[in-house]
Nucleic acid binder design. Structure first.
Lengths: 244, 244
DNA sequence: GAGGAAAGTTAGGCGAGCCTAAATTGCAAA
DNA sequence: TTTGCAATTTAGGCTCGCCTAACTTTCCTC
């Protein structure tokens, strides 16, 4: 029998290890529990590989694992995952705000840099940005001590006709979607009004500023919104050009 | 028999591969040829590990290897090495000039980032810096097409008494040395005059600006200088504060 | 020229992460 | 309750990059 304390040395936070913890964290916040096969899909590896890594992560106290039942992050695991996510989002913010990257191309770059950057670098970037609270896609940036505001949000598809809302977030992983949103000028902070919904899950018509845009239902499901509480649109943070 | 063309696929430029090519390039420019044991020392691995990697690199056309005689980079190998060195030096420049890193702490950070950064990122940093030609330690930055000015320079220890010279370069790998140089205000572009040399390889006295500084002979050997051709000191490039 | 030290290579092994194929388990529908 | 499928784990194997130990080669000295 091998308890987590028998582990010879602390597990090094290698690139694969950080990627697993991040993926498990994201699945856990979305579905409450991370399934082996979902982790495998997220990381593009075989399910058997996930089982192997899960065993190592659990042995080192990052996960609680009940065989055949799924995994849960421990406090240690959650802390490690949030550290990686903070790095990722700060990097994305810096790349867009300071270096002029378009928002559809920052994900892959941040994905690689997040494993190589030191804590000092990340904090210098955060300072240069004025300690941003959201990344360019509207995702909240965890603090250094590991707290995040992961409120669930409604999607664009949930809006009733005539309802007004403000876009708050979109996944950073779909460049094509991001390019389309840039085209119709829909970004975090933008207010939208639902104009019309075609029946049977057909396209939706949105008013964005003074223009109308037609969007498919699958797109609408990927865009998160929140109610507009004040009269006028207020962007959640200062934003620079993301044209590249 | 296996020629380099039989290699199934192109060798991936992984982190170790880039490190080996860079180390071999640096040894080659210093000593004409890279010895297995010197590569091993530079990378802190066992000589047998170097032999193994050399075989792979030679098989893929990055090196010419004559067993027991040492290695030479091919054009492909030199190109790959210079690409990594360019990334390293641009990163060091950005970290000091834009993010305020002290020059004794940029090496390790750049060492990790150089493997993760995309070409696009490196070129954006170069643009932001105005296409610098030297890094903070005075090392020349290779161009995108792989050319560098690697002129050999005399060292501070070579100066005759009364001789005036301009510091051009110092290794980025010795933080302690770099901190001391910062303390006596000696950096690339600074003019110095040799005031006195103690006999039997004793300490040297230098005039830097209006102050005199005593330096050991081993330090003096690590600082490269060139003759001062014009009347006044001209820094080779705009420089920002490196206090951190 | 011979001998030995130093340098380089070969042999054999290890861990991390990945794979496929073959069990095993859990769940849901009949 | 049984049965079958989907999810998961185990078994066994691979490559990369590293190691130590044992060997070969080179080269320097006598």
């Amino acid at each position: 029998m091998m308890s987590r304390k028998d582990a010879a040395a602390r597990l090094a936070l290698t690139e694969p290890v950080e990627d697993y913890l991040k993926a498990i964290y994201e699945l856990e916040t979305r579905h409450g529990v991370a399934a082996t096969s979902d982790v495998a899909t997220a990381l593009a590896v075989a399910p058997a590989s996930v089982t192997g890594m899960i065993r190592r992560l659990a042995m080192h106290g990052y996960l609680d694992h009940v065989p055949y039942r799924g995994v849960q992050l421990t406090d240690d695991g959650r802390r490690a995952a949030l550290r990686t996510i903070r790095r990722h989002r700060i990097l994305e913010s810096y790349l867009t705000s300071v270096l002029g990257y378009p928002w559809d191309r920052v994900h892959d770059e941040a994905e690689r840099l997040e494993h190589a950057a030191s804590d000092e670098l990340i904090e210098r970037l955060a300072v240069a940005l004025g300690h941003p609270t959201q990344d360019p896609h509207g995702a909240p940036i965890p603090t250094v001590d590991g707290t995040v505001d992961e409120r669930p949000h409604r999607t664009l598809a949930d809006l009733a006709i005539g309802e007004r809302a403000r876009m708050v977030q979109v996944s950073d992983k779909n460049p094509q979607l991001l390019r389309y949103l840039a085209e119709i000028a829909l970004q975090p902070g933008t207010a939208v009004t639902m104009i019309a919904k075609a029946p049977f899950g057909g396209p939706l018509t949105l008013r964005i500023g003074t223009a109308d845009a037609m969007v498919g239902p699958s797109l609408a499901e990927q865009v998160r919104v929140e109610p507009v509480t004040d009269a006028r649109t207020v962007p959640p943070r200062a934003r620079k050009s993301t044209t590249g």
